[in-house]
Design a protein around this nucleic acid. Sequence first.
DNA 1: GCTCGTCACAGAAACGTTTCGAGCAGGCTA
DNA 2: TAGCCTGCTCGAAACGTTTCTGTGACGAGC
Lengths: 344, 344
Amino acid sequence: MATRRRPTMKDVAEHARVSLSTVSYVLNGTGPVAPERRDRVLDAVRVLEYSPNGSARSLKRRRASTIGLVVPELTNQFFAMVAEGVQKAASARDVLVVLVVPDATEQPEEKQATLLRSQRLDGVVYLSGTGSLPTAILELQRSGPVVLVDEQIPGFDLPAVVCDSRRGAREVARHVFEHGHRRVAVIGGPSALWTAQQRLAGYREAAAAAGLDTDEIPVLVGDYRQESGARLAAQALAGPPGTRPTALLCANDLMAIGALEHCKAAGIRVPQELSLVGFDDLPVSGLLTPRLTTVRQPAHDMGFRAATALFDLLEPGDAPPGGLGMLPATVQLRDSVAPPAVPG
Amino acid sequence: MATRRRPTMKDVAEHARVSLSTVSYVLNGTGPVAPERRDRVLDAVRVLEYSPNGSARSLKRRRASTIGLVVPELTNQFFAMVAEGVQKAASARDVLVVLVVPDATEQPEEKQATLLRSQRLDGVVYLSGTGSLPTAILELQRSGPVVLVDEQIPGFDLPAVVCDSRRGAREVARHVFEHGHRRVAVIGGPSALWTAQQRLAGYREAAAAAGLDTDEIPVLVGDYRQESGARLAAQALAGPPGTRPTALLCANDLMAIGALEHCKAAGIRVPQELSLVGFDDLPVSGLLTPRLTTVRQPAHDMGFRAATALFDLLEPGDAPPGGLGMLPATVQLRDSVAPPAVPG
DNA sequence: GCTCGTCACAGAAACGTTTCGAGCAGGCTA
DNA sequence: TAGCCTGCTCGAAACGTTTCTGTGACGAGC
């Protein structure tokens, strides 16, 4: 017995004794079809177990019903949460989400653009994370809509869903300064990234408001990964005891966790000897000892909004590219901040 | 100026003054083409910025160069790590990975099968996680290759990449019993899942070896999520002090973390008053206080192998469905296990 | 009783590839 | 020189949809 091939619309049409176009009309709900013939078609579909060929459909419709999701790394739970939000918005529209993790690939940037141009993706939600060049985004953007998450490129007004990182950073830093810290260090993100710049700016605003000379605050540049947090914490705390910072402002939770890791290894007690704050509020951050004081971003919501905005862009029917705008970032006060051991 | 349409092979052919088929031969490396004409084609491709239309290609080739990745939830870092492994194997072959998160969707199971039948996915890597019915997998499997990760369905010999959960569970439990614990409770995974069964079996083997009556060990059934860990820990520890278990064997780290969360809230000191072990070795597990004793699964590698096996299945050219087999699970001894407060 | 619209339907032309078969040179063996 | 292979090239037919255009039938209006 020959392996039976998958049924096509033609088979359905013959089985239902109607034309190809009628089947198409029934399946898509376009065009008027008499009830009796509609039922015949639907029956045939059921009997033959027909399901439409997505490739042919994409080819004809000039739309893949698929979007890309570029994530720097999945093991960062913040990205994972955003990804779930994107998934949710997409699945509600029967749109597939293809995952692109540039770091796991060899030729990252070029491939991405090629991918979009190959008509297999209608658009892209882009999470810039560990410091890739934003110029790649512009290249992408030439051939299809791109919505940024937590990123903005000065001078190019690309659609983006962002959080008020600056304000969040300012408030969490203010919390630190209100405890009396005067010598602090910043473990920042990749300086090319908008979030890194915003958070740093927020820290500086708070420092200035506390009467500090912002130029004297050391800024160590990390890559938003745990390892760099540990390494830079070691570096920041290397000086002689009297001159060491009493608090570390980390631009994301992962680096704060790395810093905490270093402190445990080095026998530095947190928060008694060193205060620590992060950014993102990962699910795990509340479980550490001490529980990490940080800033929460509505990750799931950001992903959902970004995807929704992308769909609005793709079908400029009804709504303007809404949903964009600045989401609040809220400080989560917990246990990793305490007054410095030696005030002043 | 009219918005210029995307160039097609026809445009390339005209620009290079060759036929359509010649262009195709050059692009795919199939069929002999004289060097001089080959260069003409390649030039034209560059000049016109041509890139092939993926939909048309898929339609003609009867292959989408896309696989599906079904994950119960991304925020579980174990799944995220597996996903990265899958990504890596796929991107090496220019295959796209579409993410399917049934929980984020409304009609989970039915949609998945439909998806595979629509020729938009060549195959699927399936991570069964929080307890969906394995029967859905069989339905999927009827219309395309499916490779399971950390799951096996008795009676159906589906390709799967698994870890030796049973052995890992046995050894970590033995470690607990060697510390003198006699009253333990199991916080298990969904009983429909192979991993849950295996791990429970491993725990029981160790208990039997320690001379315990395995029937007397309470088994609380969770769903591999943190919340259920916290809830079930509360339940397990509810009895009067003398009868409470002195150790909790948790079938994955997330539930162990939940249990730890409950202990902190309830003022139960770990490991002094209660020992705790998990399974998976999430990146975060070594950072908790106390650091969690658990069993490491090579998550990234599992994902990579599963995807590789899927590709072998899709192109039955060279290798047999290799890469399948049982990977080792290695115990990570850390600080969450100590002798019971009152031995005996 | 004829034309005119409307309503259902069918035919056929795309969409952009891949690939089979045929054609057409030119060099080789008899 | 006739025949034959070999190497390159092209035309054309798919692949399975969507959708434009055309065409009967039918009722209404003069």
